[in-house]
Amino acid sequence: MADDGLVKEIAERRGVVDWSQLQVDSTGLVSLASGIDSAKFVALKDNILREEMKAGRLMTADQMSEKITGYYDKLIDVLIALFILFTVVSYVAINSKFREKYEEDRAKIISEIEESIIKSHPLHKDLENTIATRISKNLVTEDTIHDIREKLSKNDEYFDLLASVCDDLTEEAALKTDIEDPEEETQEA
């Protein structure tokens, strides 16, 4: 159908089209500027489209939809990554701000408590009394030591009696074992 000379000319151009041979009319249709008939024009247009498709400058509808889908998939991935990034950064920023505020408030409260303890005389006296009472309960005074020594000296007679009784019992036990040993030796022989 197409003129062989025209196809050869397009093949020689290797996909480069001489757009000066084509013109667009007021309705948006493409027509030939020269006097080439419509069959040659259709063949030219067909060859031009094939050459452009082989060169990768034209895409089918499926290829176009794949490209658009891939683009939007990448765009969504980038937006999700940005969302995660901003979430982490905002968490760190808010967390550090709250920690700073917590430390400031804590230091302020501790200093106010220390000042109120120092300035409060009734509280100061109550603390002194409580501490003195606890210390006096746990410490032994000289009077207590003297009382303990007196009680021990009163009981010296009992300690001496107990010591002599223990000595007597020890001697009796030793004599008893000496007496029992000769009997055992005679029984064994």
Rank of each mutant, 00 (worst) to 15 (best):
M1A: 13
D4I: 11
D4V: 06
D4S: 10
V7L: 06
A11N: 09
R14D: 15
G15L: 00
V16K: 12
S20M: 02
L22A: 01
L22R: 01
D25C: 02
S26W: 08
T27C: 08
L29K: 12
S31Y: 09
I36Q: 02
D37L: 03
A39H: 11
A43V: 00
N47M: 04
I48M: 05
L49N: 10
R50Q: 12
E51T: 00
A55T: 00
R57Q: 02
R57I: 02
T60L: 03
A61E: 10
Q63F: 12
D73G: 07
L79M: 14
L79Q: 13
L79W: 10
I80S: 09
A81L: 12
A81R: 15
L82D: 15
F86P: 00
T87Y: 15
V89F: 11
S90K: 07
V92G: 06
S96A: 08
K97G: 03
K97V: 05
A107V: 05
E114Y: 01
S116C: 09
I117Y: 02
I118W: 06
S120G: 06
L123G: 09
K125Q: 12
D126N: 15
A132I: 05
S136Y: 01
I145D: 07
I148Q: 10
L152F: 08
K154P: 00
E157T: 05
F159S: 06
A163K: 14
S164F: 06
V165F: 05
V165A: 11
D168F: 06
D168Y: 09
D168E: 10
D168V: 05
L169T: 04
E171F: 13
E172K: 11
E172S: 06
T177H: 13
D181H: 08
E185N: 07
T186A: 13
